[in-house]
C-alpha cells in the first residue's frame, strides 16, 4: 500500500494565542510546535495501515523550512519518506495551498506511482479553512470524505490496486460508514487512534532520513474566480465574567442544587 499523509506545523495546542504587533501572525516565538492534532492522528493511521498491509508511507508538509521538525517527528514514529514543499515564508490561502499540493502530489506520483490513500487532517488547528483536502481530492479526481474516525481495509483486500477502504465518520449517536474505491483521500479527526510516542530507534532513524524539498508553484489560474485574503488577526471580544463563588467544599452542595433548580435542569 502506498500512503501519503499531509501535515501542518502549528503552535502546540492548548497554549494561549497571542498576536504579533503587525496583527498578521500568531506570535509563536515562545511557543512549542507540533503537528496539527488531526494530522498527527493521520500519520499514526498511515503507520498502522503500513504495518498491517505492507508498503510505504510518505509524509509531506507545505510550510516554512522549520516544518522539517514535524516531518522528522513523523519519520520517528514509522513514516519512511518525507517531503517539504517550501512556502518561502509567505502563507497561502486555501486555493493556492491546494493547487501547490496537487502539483507536488502529481510529481511524487510520477516518480514512484499513485498513492492508494492520501490522508489529510479534517481541518488545520490554526487557520481551520476546512477545504484544502477536499480541493486536492477533487483536482485529482479521487473520492474524499472528511471527518473520518475509523479506517479499515475490507477482508481479503490489501489496500492497493482497485480495492476499497472503509471509512467511518462519527456523528452524534454513532457512525456513518463509507466505502471508498482506491485510490482515495480522507480527512481524519483526532480520536481515530492514539498516536504513539517515538522509540529511540525511531528518533535515530529520523535524524538520518533524507529530507526531499519539492519546490512547486500554485496554478496561475488558482484565483481565476476570486480569492479570500486575511486583513488582520484579532482576539475575540472577551465577555467579562463575574464568577459567583457558591462556596468552598462540600457545604456548597445545596447552593449548587439551588442553581440547578433555578436553571430548570432538575
Amino acid at each position: 500500500m502506498r500512503i501519503l499523509a499531509l501535515v501542518k506545523r502549528v503552535p502546540a495546542p492548548g497554549a494561549r494565542i497571542n498576536i504579533t504587533e503587525d496583527e498578521q501572525h500568531v506570535d509563536d516565538k515562545n511557543l512549542g510546535h507540533a503537528i496539527s492534532p488531526h494530522e498527527e492522528c493521520g500519520v499514526e493511521a498511515a503507520v498502522q495501515l503500513i504495518e498491517q498491509y505492507g508498503g510505504d508511507a510518505t509524509v509531506m508538509s507545505m510550510g516554512a523550512d522549520v516544518s522539517e521538525e514535524q516531518l522528522r517527528a513523523a519519520v520517528s514514529v514509522g513514516i519512511s519518506k518525507m517531503v517539504l514543499v517550501p512556502t518561502n515564508g509567505s502563507p497561502k490561502d486555501p486555493q493556492a495551498t491546494a493547487s501547490a499540493l496537487v502539483a507536488a502530489i502529481r510529481e511524487l506520483e510520477e516518480q514512484d506511482g499513485v498513492f492508494d490513500l492520501i490522508i489529510f487532517g479534517n481541518e488545520s488547528a490554526d487557520q481551520g479553512g476546512f477545504q484544502v483536502g477536499i480541493r486536492v481530492a477533487h483536482e485529482l479526481g479521487r473520492a474524499m470524505v472528511n471527518g473520518i474516525k475509523g479506517l479499515e481495509i475490507p477482508d481479503g483486500q490489501d489496500g492497493s490496486g482497485d480495492g476499497h477502504i472503509v471509512a467511518r465518520r462519527e456523528v452524534d449517536a454513532g457512525f456513518e460508514v463509507y466505502e471508498l474505491p482506491l485510490p482515495a483521500c480522507v480527512g481524519v479527526k483526532e480520536g481515530i487512534n492514539l498516536p504513539r510516542y517515538p522509540t529511540m530507534k525511531g528518533r535515530l532513524a529520523s535524524k538520518k532520513a533524507e529530507l526531499v524539498s519539492l519546490a512547486v508553484e500554485a496554478d496561475a489560474d488558482a484565483h481565476a474566480n476570486g480569492r479570500q485574503a486575511q486583513t488582520r488577526l484579532k482576539s475575540p471580544p472577551e465577555t467579562a465574567t463575574e464568577t459567583v463563588i457558591l462556596g468552598d467544599g462540600v457545604d456548597a452542595a445545596p447552593a449548587v442544587v439551588d442553581l440547578l433548580e433555578e436553571l430548570g435542569v432538575l
Binding site: F130, I134, N146, N225, R227
Partner: peptide, 22 residues
Amino acid sequence: TDRGNELMAQLAARAGLPFVAN
C-alpha cells in the same frame, strides 16, 4: 458544521470559487 463545511468545500472545489469557513 461537519456536513455544512464539507458541502461548501465540495461546491467551492467544483466551482473553482473561494470559500470562507466559520
